[in-house]
Simulated scan of single mutants.
Amino acid sequence: MPSKKLSPAQINDYKDNGYTVVKAFFSKREVSRLYDAARENHVMTDNTLDLNDQSGKKTRLSLWFTPGDDVFGYMTRSERMISCAAQLLGNNNPVCHFHSKLMQKEPKVGGAWEWHQDYGYWYKYQFMYPDQLLSIMVALTPANKQNGCLQLIKGSHKMGRINHGFAGEQMGADKVMVQNALKTMPLEYAELEAGDALFFHSNLLHRSEANLSDHPRWSIISCYNLQSNPAYNHEPSTSWKVPVAVVADEALLKWDATSSSNNDFLKKEDDPALKQTGWEQDATL
């Protein structure tokens, strides 16, 4: 079975709107293997970070840099992920894996994410070119308005980087610019079924509400960078400049997988994005 490719219309959506959605990017069997591994994997649980939103509710995630031979590594390194990332990032440079994160929004308690751009965080890694960074979110459970799906401001990636300051333990975009963006561009809800993939630009403004429903919202977000895009404050990892060792799409279901225990997980105290630099004071939150 040939690896999936994005259509010209999907590529244009990404360029014009800052995002595109691919339905059933992963099969039900593939999602089941990923979700079962996520729920049963004590390594992921042991390396979960809790980040408070402004209300004090916790958002939970596990973040790692180097993709390995576990099921999550097979997903991240799969030909379909890398070929589609290469289509959107362009310029013929190798695609590298910056990091992946397992997002865990539990029923009733899963916190919100404030309005932000991913580059608002990644700017502190001193990446030079936001156009050479993107994220691919794969839904492991349905995401809808009831359980706090992603909200996007369509076309906001064209604004460039907005000042960010601390909102709880998160980085939030300048409220005045967010309000201006909402007056100018449409607000969209990224409602996804399990297995759907959302591709989005590093400067796209997005947020999510707390999960107050009776159902979990879990997803994996893999973030990619072109090797031509240097990061000058790259601690604690250099995976961002190592070309991905691509595996066949069939690996996720057919190959033996190792434990996630060898993954280089992020510790909260090591994250450059969560350290004060001084310029956060310029943002109005």
Rank of each mutant, 00 (worst) to 15 (best):
S3W: 02
S3Q: 10
S3I: 05
K4Q: 13
L6D: 04
N12D: 10
D13W: 00
N17R: 10
G18L: 08
Y19N: 03
T20C: 15
K23N: 14
K23Y: 06
F26A: 13
K28I: 07
R29V: 13
E30A: 14
V31T: 15
S32V: 07
R33H: 08
A37C: 01
H42M: 01
M44V: 11
N47I: 00
L49W: 00
L49D: 02
G56C: 03
K58Y: 00
L61M: 12
S62E: 02
L63A: 08
P67A: 09
G68A: 03
G68W: 02
V71C: 12
G73L: 01
Y74M: 02
T76I: 12
R80I: 08
C84E: 00
N91G: 02
N92S: 09
N92P: 00
H97I: 01
H97P: 09
H97C: 13
H97R: 02
F98D: 10
H99M: 12
L102V: 11
E106M: 12
E106N: 11
P107T: 10
G111F: 04
Y119R: 10
Y119C: 07
Y123P: 02
Y125T: 05
Q126G: 05
F127A: 03
M128Q: 15
L133E: 06
L134W: 08
V138M: 13
P142K: 14
A143L: 06
N144Y: 10
Q146L: 15
G148L: 06
L150R: 12
Q151V: 09
Q151H: 13
Q151S: 15
G155T: 15
K158S: 15
R161M: 12
I162H: 05
N163D: 13
H164Y: 08
H164F: 13
F166D: 07
G168E: 11
E169F: 01
Q170D: 09
G172C: 11
D174A: 02
M177S: 12
L182Q: 06
K183G: 10
T184A: 05
L187A: 01
L192Q: 08
A197C: 07
L198M: 06
F199N: 01
F200D: 08
F200V: 05
H201N: 13
S202G: 04
E209V: 05
E209W: 02
A210T: 03
L212G: 08
D214P: 06
H215R: 08
P216T: 02
W218H: 09
I221V: 15
I221H: 01
S222P: 06
Y224G: 07
N225W: 01
L226D: 06
P230A: 06
P230Y: 03
N233V: 08
T238W: 03
S239R: 01
S239N: 13
K241V: 10
A245K: 13
A245D: 14
V246G: 05
V247H: 00
D249I: 07
E250C: 08
E250H: 12
E250G: 11
A251W: 05
A251D: 09
A251F: 12
L253S: 14
L253P: 11
L253Y: 03
K254T: 14
W255L: 04
D256I: 03
A257Q: 04
S261C: 12
L266H: 13
K268C: 08
K268V: 10
E269A: 14
L274V: 04
K275H: 07
Q276H: 10
T277L: 12
T277R: 14
G278Y: 09
G278N: 12
W279N: 09
E280V: 13
E280G: 03
D282R: 10
T284H: 09
